[in-house]
């Protein structure tokens, strides 16, 4: 079985090496991939959409359907992760651990014991031993706002520099995950709840599909943003640029929320009580 597998892999590798001699050499300007439709995109993106970043204009305008269904794929992945893992019946753990913050004494409270709720002096900690990490918490508290501002910059400036909805959404989701790692999962869920994250997943896809549907009300094709010039009060070419921005914001919201949902469910195996 193992030998068979290695033979199959070596055969495939030889086949790929044999085929690669028919491919264009590295950096060939006349390569087939770069000579048909891509030169149209490069030469006409400014006059069609007034977006200098060709990747963004191809992503959200020329190939808008592709990106829309990619967003739907990500949304489906988030939903299926919830359906696979989430345990909706809350399972109370046998014991809960609390730490007295000023002295560092850990209390183990059995089920049915009195838990110190609503006090600033105690904090609940996970069952795995977690030291009181002042340096990590303070550093992350300082870094996270800047990470989020950078994420918003990447989303908003995606027309003119490398960036866009997918990248900015992932950076924003990473900032929420960083918060959940540096504090704990319960604190992160208090700040950004499961319902909010699930709602944002759907909202992002809705913004994308809704922008496309809005164009149909003005006698244009689905996802033809030039029809938005009636609403925005600009010429059709600028309207396409603004339509791309709206769509990118939708993508960013969906991607951010899906990253957060995936982390919440994977880190706690669906219990959303004790995590990393």
């Amino acid at each position: 079985m193992r030998g068979m597998g290695i033979i199959v892999i070596l055969f495939l590798g030889t086949l790929l090496i044999y085929c690669s001699f028919d491919f264009p050499i590295w950096g060939d300007p006349q390569s087939p991939a770069g000579s048909h439709v891509s030169s149209y995109y490069i030469e006409h993106t400014l006059e069609d959409t007034s977006v200098p970043n060709i990747v963004t204009s191809v992503l959200a305008d020329y190939r808008g359907y592709d990106t829309m269904f990619e967003t739907v794929v990500i949304f489906t992945a988030g939903i299926s992760c919830i359906l696979l893992l989430r345990t909706f019946k809350p399972i109370e753990p046998q014991t809960k651990l609390y730490r007295h913050i000023s002295t560092g004494i850990t209390l183990r409270i059995e089920r049915g014991g009195k838990v110190p709720e609503n006090t600033k002096e105690f904090e609940r900690i996970d069952a795995g031993w977690i030291p009181y990490d002042l340096i990590v918490k303070t550093t992350c508290r300082l870094i996270i706002p800047f990470v989020q501002i950078f994420a918003l910059y990447v989303i908003a400036h995606g027309h003119h520099s490398p960036g866009g909805g997918f990248q900015g959404g992932v950076i924003f989701g990473a900032s929420v995950i960083l918060f959940a790692i540096s504090f704990d999962l319960r604190t992160a869920i208090r700040r950004m709840g499961e319902r909010l994250a699930g709602f944002l997943c759907a909202l992002g896809v809705f913004i994308y599909a809704g922008t496309g549907a809005l164009c149909m009300f003005y006698d244009a094709n689905y996802l033809d943003y030039s029809a938005l010039s009636h609403i925005l009060g600009v010429d059709p070419v600028s309207a396409r640029s603004h339509g791309i921005l709206v769509v990118e914001i939708g993508v960013a919201i969906a991607v951010m929320a899906v990253m957060v949902v995936l982390y919440y469910n994977l880190a706690s195996a669906g219990k959303q009580d004790e995590g990393l």
Binding site: T67, E70, I74, C81, F166, V255
Partner: peptide, 13 residues
């Protein structure tokens, strides 16, 4: 660009 993000989502599943 889209494939990378979808790869992360499928990794999650």
């Amino acid at each position: 660009l889209t494939a990378i993000v979808v790869a992360v989502a499928t990794l999650g599943v």
